[in-house]
Write a protein that binds this DNA or RNA. Sequence first.
RNA 1: GGGCUCAUAGCUCAGUUGGUUAGAGCGCUACACUGAUAAUGUAGAGGUCCCUGGUUCGAGUCCAGGUGGGCCCA
Length: 1068
Amino acid sequence: MFQPFEGIPDYPKLEKETLEFWETRQIFHKLRDQTENGARWDFQDGPITANNPMGVHHAWGRTYKDIFNRFHAMNGRRLRWQNGFDCQGLWVEVEVEKALGFKGKPDILAFGMENFSRECRARVEKYADVISQQSTRLGMWMDWERSYFTFDDSNIEHIWLFLQKCHEEGWLGPDYRVMPWCPRCETSLSQHESADSYKEVTHRSVYLKFPVGGEKFAADHFLVWTTTPWTLTANVALAVNPELTYVRAKTDDITVILSKGTVQSALKPGYEVLEEISGADLVGLTYSGPLDDIPFQTESEKTHPRRVVAADWVGESDGTGIVHIAPGCGADDFELGQRENLGFIAPVTTSAHFRSECGPELAGLHALEDAETVFSELEKRGRLYRIQRYKHSYPHCWRCSNELIFYATQEWFIKADAGQNPARGRLQKAASEVNWVPEYAGKRMQDWLNNMGDWNISRKRFWGLPLPVWRDDESGEWAVIGSRAELRERAVEPERVDALPELHRPWIDEIEIWNADKTRKLRRIPEVGDAWLDAGIVPFSTVGYNGADDIRMPELKIAAQEEWKAADFITEMREQVRLWFFSMLFMSVALEDRAPYKTAMVYETMLDADAMRISKTLKNGVPYDEAVATVGADPMRWTFCGNTLTKDIRFGYKPIHESARKLLTLWNVYSFFVTYANLDKPQLGELPRVENILDKWILARLQTCIAGVTKSIEGIEPAGVTREIESFVEVLSNWYVRRSRRRFWKSESDADKNAAYATLHHVLLTLSKLIAPVLPFSAENIYRNLSSPLQNAPESVHLCAWPVVDENWRDDALVSQVEGVLQAVSLGLAARKDSKIRARQPLSKALIQAPDQNGRAAIEAWRETILDELNVKEIELLDDAGDLVTYSLKANLPVVGKRFGKGVGALRQLLENAEPSEAKRIGESVKRGEAVEIELSGEKQTLEPNEVLVSTQQQSGYSFASENGWSVALDTSLTDELVLEGLARDFVRAVQEGRKRAGFEVSDRISILVVDEENSRLADVLEGFGDYLQSETLADELRFVDAAYPELSEAKMGEETLRFRVEKVSEI
RNA sequence: GGGCUCAUAGCUCAGUUGGUUAGAGCGCUACACUGAUAAUGUAGAGGUCCCUGGUUCGAGUCCAGGUGGGCCCA
């Protein structure tokens, strides 16, 4: 007895029960044991940041991960099953700050670094738990007890090892540069981090008047434009492009100098251009700046007088063609300042507050937030010409969304092009050996590597990888430590290293080491590392590459498991190409000179249903917990899996519901099987000898499906899986089950009925395995129910072997035959539609023309089925002989194309427009498989039979429907016998409807009470088809009643109105 | 400015090495079918396959240029 199933699945309920089953029966652990000795297939998980609950976009990626893991486990492969958490870096700190209500670094310092670190760890541990729970709910199988955490000392030590290696290669070192800097977080950000951070904002831009020094343009002003007025405190020069043309122009009763191309946008209306000047002539002029009186400026001018310099990057797309240069506040400026020896001013503190040397009016104010004061100071000094609102894209902190500034600072870099053995070429070679899916991911990686700048790995923060650099500030001597053991060896007080609770700030900062000759004590630099170092090292740290034992999964230990080093598969969203994929690649190339992964799959962006980017402020995303609780995980997983990798996914409840509806067909078939099997209790197990062509066909079609699904997963094409399964379920339901229904209804048990049960059972059971990776819950539910009568069946679908194609059942010819039959039936229904005769009305004859021998064989093989589908008594297979046939010819283009080249056009003309007699001559030859002579453009040619496509049409009075060489016509002439049969069918239909309405069981026996109207043909119908009526409707009796009989229903029988009633025959 | 990528029905998307009349699902309309059906079938409406040029006997498919969108870099 199977668990009954009806209606639509309640996924949330079904999934919860399944989770309990997995848990109590320890299915995951059994799977792991069962694959223990299998060949390795290594999925390396990219760590998810454990600082918040997961979102629905995480569920997308995690679905892919789970699909591939489950598939390979079913194939007996040994997997790692290790989830990873990203645990440190700015993203964690910012969330903890928010939770504690902190505004910035000073709050953290007041709170105490030790307390702060503990808070960070606690948050990570909390959300690691939350995410583990959420992922479990998604059906994701991992060894959740043994996830890796990037804050582990072992992870940190592995990064140290890597950085030491970089040092040996000559790639690592400090540099003084202008960097994007977040004044709130008080740290610089890397190239990685600033990449996504540009946002459209509107700022006030300002045009300023800078009086020109010297004699040449003594009364004039340079007109200078900037969007960051605060940087004027650090102005040391102006830059012009010597290639550009500049002008002197009169405006507001003064004379200004600016580039010719910017006059219109920069000057107020009513200006007058006086003369043109070459940019080169401006170089070398002096000027006085707008804030010349502040101490920074007066001091700087003593050694570096203000002057105009040349820069070829100055343009005219905005501004005035004259750029104010502040080497302390911009990367280009900094570089130009170095080249031209312009002097240097750093006007603000790390939190963007003006230093005291900016003068009493500005000192202590915030450069961005107190911009008003800057404007009024400029106004006070009479230097403002004009203020305009200006919309542009400006960088923001990717974690706290505050506007960034550019700040001169010393940071630590990994320089790819430095050293004896530069990294770039080695990285490119390693990347080229990876199988990128889709291919463009590999091109993006190459592009990134081509353009890769130095990698800023230092952050002036707290909770992160402590950079293993110890330095003596006085002498500048520094050393890189590669492990905790080495640290102990060189420590001034080794026992303090032993006492370290963990390798984090503030504890690690207390350790001092000796320099090489033990003459100086070195202290650790305070910086922590870029979080991408943490994630990038995991291919090594999770397997204990450095030989230490303190890893979460000891069985992966590298000494014993050399094989785990390069993952077979990784997958993340596309931006990870330049983030995690890159950092892993870099670290692996540094350590082992090879890529740490063999296949890398990327997917695109999740958008909402209206193609809008999902953002927290818009609240347009589907919340994960809500979605999984209301619609369930499986429909979501089906939606995710069906998305084409190269396309963004538009995600919302509508697509999930659409997926659920597609899956409903499968559940309907399952429900059909369970319902009838429970009535009949058939023998199930081994497939009996298969005789019925429907069974043969669906088993053959199943093999096609197995092959297709397997190929899709192995070819890293998840969308193919859903396509293959959906098309199979479609024909399973609408051809196999529909055509087999009567086989299941037969009241007696016979071989054919049993074969039908056994076949459908086998198909559904196999299907449950095919969907198991994508729909782990539904598959389990269906499998467990269907496998219940089987001996020795694994207790879970996930412990089953992946189905393989059985060559005994494979029959591609049969599969394509049925495609032809479906076409013929569809054409027949179209012809019937055309004739306007209802489907219940039997017709005497269908005339079918098949395109070829295989098609004719299909009609013969499926004759009974087609008769029934089309409701006709007879099929006449039109052959191609006789005078009534017309031939139409077409060139077989792929074949003749190569041979005839330019002549193809003429040949097509000739064949398609051939006279009937000529068409017949050629057509008949081809049908006989003989070559035929033709005359083409005045030349004799011989056409081989495979070069011509022949289709024939019967000349006939019937209306045809035809397509792809198939034609079907119906003989619509009706005999009285046929009319009566049609009426009988109407009667049956009416009674069945009545049974359903009355709520009878399928097996209930009934009485039919019917009113015999005047002039009705009812009596004739009963006489001719009484037995048929009774057996179809399970009616024990059929009797006439008076028109006054209570509660009669009405129905149409042909043109007549039938009044009747059905009653259940009492059990007695 | 450089790189990658996309453009096919009202919407979401298939379209394998170039091949004859470009498909599916959803939505809409009409009709039909229904003892698994929140199903299904048939038909209709809806397409300059973004544009231009090239290669070819033949281009949605290959190439070049352009337009528009997305992403990355400078």
